[in-house]
Write a protein that binds this DNA or RNA. Structure first.
Lengths: 202, 202
DNA sequence: CTTGTCGCCTACCGATCAGTAGGTAGTTAC
DNA sequence: GTAACTACCTACTGATCGGTAGGCGACAAG
């Protein structure tokens, strides 16, 4: 076996090399966008040669499309889990915000991958752009459904139709991520999003 | 004079070559971010050689710092003009939103330069990052002052302290820009921001 | 025991990146 | 008239970009 054999993955959280590549790409993209990372950057972190990344993802567009697809899948699983474990719509929204507040505070994922990619949509490969668009639609639909259910049950008070409230909510969350990053202050995310929830629930 | 002499600027809106370079850089950056454009891209559009850009802006960081500085100056002039010509704070906010709605609809500036740069703050040169931070602070301060004045005059009803309302407003506007871009639908900006205003003014 | 596949490697490609060196033609100041 | 300055040029550098060609060892199936 070659000297460049992959070490036992016990030390890393990724189960496969593909996952390790995607993990690394995600953290690099949320830091600097699609054009802010290179195959060489990933190779260095993952401990693999640049050419080996092409074995898993022939082109950069393939890599990022796969990454966003995985991100969407995990997000949908997360939202589904929320529906299972949290009954009250208002509490679901609070849990959603709490998730991101924790991510940002721990610098685990200081901004939503798709929010960042959306900002540079015009220069993204088409296949990536449509995945990003898909995430926006999915998230907005879930929020709208949650809002309307909350309104029907009486726990939430909507001033506008569910879909409009949902878009406003989502936009505010994305903007709050930008502000937290711009100010270098993770607490800013909570400062902005807490009133958002109080207005719906209060 | 060389064959590459700059043609009379009558055909272009920029008064000087520096301005033309900055104009071009701005439209490239709002499309694809800091790492999404090159000196070669600018050279081709402006009709100048790559090396000549270095004469005006020695390094890329200098160029973008100058660009954000110009952007901030123009933004502050715009806000000052708003204060001069629009008396009512609610109308000022409406005018601010209307400005961006028009920019986005006409694809003149489909997103705020600083909002976009904020998304990739971690990979920006320090000198650029601090300019971006400065814009966020300036805009938030203006919004907070406008909110508080509106509240004092009775035209606006704040559910939270002025500074918090201002941060929420700004974040929602930035998020609305992202959503409009993600959906490829300029009208989404208005859909999201209109309720924002109605809640303050209504 | 062969054959195929998988995961990774070395070595390379042409293109492009930001940036530099040094020259030239016009303009202005003395 | 000459010295200094501005704005632009040609020509180049070394680094890095995404991507390719082809080989090698481990492993599984027939």
């Amino acid at each position: 076996m070659s000297t460049y054999q992959k070490v036992d993955t016990g030390m890393t959280s990724a189960r496969t090399t593909s996952d390790a590549i995607l993990d690394c790409a995600q953290s690099l993209i949320v830091a600097g966008g699609y054009n802010g990372f290179s195959y060489a950057d990933i190779a260095e972190v993952v401990g693999i040669r640049k050419a080996s990344i092409h074995h898993h993802f022939p082109a950069k567009a393939d890599l990022v499309r796969a990454l966003v697809a995985r991100y969407r899948r995990e997000a949908e699983e997360g939202l589904a889990a929320l529906e299972q474990h949290v009954g009250d719509p208002a509490a679901r929204l609070a849990a959603y915000l709490g998730y991101w507040e924790a991510c940002i505070a721990e610098a685990r994922a200081p901004i939503c991958l798709c929010a960042l990619l959306a900002s540079e949509l015009p220069v993204l490969p088409d296949v990536v752009a449509s995945e990003v668009r898909g995430h926006f639609r999915t998230l907005a639909a879930w929020l709208a459904a949650t809002m309307e259910r909350g309104a029907a049950e009486g726990g939430l008070h909507l001033s506008d139709p569910g879909p409009v409230e949902a878009e406003l909510f989502m936009a505010s969350v994305h903007g709050a991520m930008l502000s937290a990053r711009a100010y270098g202050d993770p607490a800013m995310f909570g400062t902005i999003t807490r009133p958002l929830l109080h207005r719906l629930a209060g």
